[in-house]
């Protein structure tokens, strides 16, 4: 079966193809079942990565992204699910051991919690750091925080930078420009 057929075999979910990459968007309630089915019935035995996207201003705000592959690396499949700010995502760490640290990273950077995860703690930042730094409303320069005896953080001087591109506009408008502190 091709990747596309695999994707279509999944009962619900919107399938799209872009430059040879197949993506299925499933409702959050069916995410766990879909992942399990991919692993057990369709041969996607390997979890390559878990990541998340912050669509600030949209509802639901976040999106989980799972990258799956077959063991012989012949087929890749991407599964996505939208997550609202107050929702928990069911953990995949009982399906793939490797999901453990990926999910902790997602929690650390985005603040999405995983239900049933054996150790839902920060993995890169220190325990007690009050922010989720990869959220869109977090300034690139960082924020001040202080945990005595553990760690502190400050605001980096950006001197007008960073130089960022803007999406969706005319080419002239979208060129990299310094756009303030964040």
């Amino acid at each position: 079966m091709s990747v596309l057929e695999d994707a279509q075999a999944m009962t619900s979910g919107e399938v799209s193809e872009f430059r040879g990459e197949t993506t299925v968007v499933v409702p959050l309630a069916e995410l766990k079942a879909s992942l399990k089915k991919c692993r057990d019935a369709q041969g996607y035995e390997m979890l390559l990565d878990i990541s998340s996207v912050d669509y600030l201003g949209e509802e639901p705000r976040f999106e989980m992204v799972y990258e799956l592959a077959t063991l012989d690396d012949s087929k890749h499949l991407r599964i996505k699910a939208k997550v609202a700010e107050d929702e928990d995502v069911p953990t995949a760490s009982d399906l793939w051991k490797t999901a453990n640290w990926h999910e902790r990273e997602v929690y650390d950077m985005m603040g999405i919690k995983f239900a049933g995860h054996p150790q839902m703690e920060r993995i890169l930042m220190w325990e007690g750091y009050p922010y989720f730094p990869l959220r869109k409303d977090f300034p690139l320069a960082g924020k001040e925080s202080n945990m005595p005896e553990v760690a502190f953080s400050g605001v980096a001087p950006l001197e007008g930078g960073p130089f960022v591109t803007s999406p969706g506009a005319t080419r002239e408008h979208g060129e990299p420009r310094a756009r303030g502190e964040s």
């Binding site: 730094p133 300034p139 690139l140 953080s153 980096a156 001087p157 930078g161």
Partner: peptide
Amino acid sequence: SGGMYRSYAVLQ
């Protein structure tokens, strides 16, 4: 000086 890492994670 923090080098190229003008970011939330790096001491400047």
